[in-house]
Amino acid sequence: MDWIKPGRATGLGSLPYQDELTAIKLIAKAMPHWPHWPQLPAKMPEQGFVVQYVQPLIKMGLLAVQSLKEPVFCRGETDWDAKTADFYEKYLAFSNDEPGAGQPFALTGEAFAGMETFMEHFSRFFPQAEGVKGHVSGPLTVGLQIKDEWGKACFYDEALRDILVHCLTVEAVLEAKRLKTLGLPVLIFIDDPGLFLIGASTHITLTRQDASTALAAIIKALQGLGVKVGVHACAGIDWSILFDLPLDLISFDAYHYFTGMALQADGLAGFLRRGGKMAWGLIPTSEEAWQETADTIFAKFQEQCDELTRRGIDSALLRKNMLWTPSCGTGALPVALAEHIYDLVEKVVENGVP
């Protein structure tokens, strides 16, 4: 039996609320079959995209968080070597499944309050759930934001990138294990919008190989747990980067970047034939959403299916293998707009796949 039924929806993660239960109620209404746990970056800075999943590096003293700035690796400190050795010792203990080895990486505190509330109230709010969706920040995007002591993005430094990828992998694994306790299929999105910079003239030293290798490490670890894995990119990228990875799902902004996906129709067709799923982000996470209804969304989707058919894609296969989603997260939007976007998702789900 297929692991996602047609006409289902999920979200990217972030919402602009100050209260977890309010967010969960909205998710339950719009996405009852494949809910996601909420991130509330407006409430807690620790739930921000860059810092949420590197909390262990902050706690171990490898990263310093300066006021209103992204974290910085503390490589200039005299005890740096000891701290890195300690990190790898803890990582190896975790990899070897030693008792208590997950504690230094535990998803606790303010950074993961949304997940804890979601888990605590899951049976109450999600009686129709067929699966559950989580998320982890992508290594390229985070690695371009976190700097070394000289102000250089840490992703360009092999040693620092290795630390970052190992940390994100452990966090993703712990999240997946936590969600699996609900007894339902688990889907984890790796959110890596920075992939659009590969090939850009402003980032000529950024290589496809390094980005793919970093993603592959997290994908392999998650799939080893029997978890489905997707990658989300909300900008126009070279989609062959993702088609070439062993992914279960690709999530993209179908509202603004459909043309780029259509131009790579051969890759998309092959991905679908291999059993891949698409998260079709056709509900815009912008002011444009005020102009849309379920009917206009369906009309756009039909136009897109017609275009894909002209390019040799079996649109019926796509319809059977997709999730509806907002085009991106809503954490930075006004509350009224975020609620309208989730209401659009709800109405689209109610009407099914056209």
Rank of each mutant, 00 (worst) to 15 (best):
A159L: 06
I146M: 07
S123R: 08
A159D: 14
S137I: 00
A172S: 15
A176H: 11
V170G: 15
Y156D: 10
M115N: 01
K147W: 00
R161S: 13
K133T: 10
L140I: 06
L168D: 10
V136L: 02
T169W: 10
G143L: 12
K152F: 07
H135V: 04
E171N: 14
M119F: 04
F118K: 03
V142D: 03
Q145E: 13
L160E: 05
C154Q: 09
K147M: 13
H121G: 01
T117M: 13
A113M: 05
W150T: 10
P127V: 10
F155K: 10
L174N: 13
K147Q: 14
L140T: 10
L168N: 09
L174G: 15
C154M: 15
V173T: 13
S137D: 01
E116R: 14
V170K: 11
F125V: 01
A153C: 06
G114I: 03
G138M: 03
K147G: 02
R161F: 07
I163D: 11
A172L: 09
L164R: 15
Q128E: 12
A172F: 09
E171F: 00
V173A: 13
F125D: 02
D157V: 13
W150N: 14
F126C: 05
D148S: 02
T141K: 08
A113V: 03
E120M: 05
E130Q: 14
K152G: 06
L164P: 13
V142Y: 06
A176V: 08
R124Q: 07
Y156S: 14
T169H: 13
L144H: 06
V165N: 10
F125Y: 14
F125N: 07
S123T: 06
K152V: 12
F155C: 11
T169N: 13
K177T: 11
T169K: 12
F122P: 05
K133N: 05
K147I: 08
L140W: 07
L164W: 14
S123L: 00
G143V: 11
T141S: 15
F155I: 12
V136M: 01
G138K: 01
L168R: 10
G134I: 00
V165M: 12
E158W: 01
Q128P: 00
E175H: 09
K177R: 15
H166G: 15
F155D: 09
K177W: 10
H166K: 14
K177I: 12
F155N: 10
S123G: 05
F122C: 07
F125C: 05
M115A: 03
T117V: 12
M119C: 08
Y156C: 09
H135M: 04
H166I: 01
Q145R: 15
F122L: 05
L140Q: 07
D148L: 03
D162I: 02
Q128L: 09
V132W: 03
L140V: 15
L160C: 08
Y156M: 12
A113W: 04
T141Q: 07
Q145W: 02
G138E: 01
D157C: 13
L164C: 11
H121T: 12
A129S: 09
I163H: 12
F122W: 05
V165G: 11
C154P: 02
E175F: 04
A129R: 03
D157K: 14
G131N: 04
L174V: 11
L168P: 09
Q145M: 10
T117F: 03
F118P: 04
F125M: 00
H121R: 14
E120K: 13
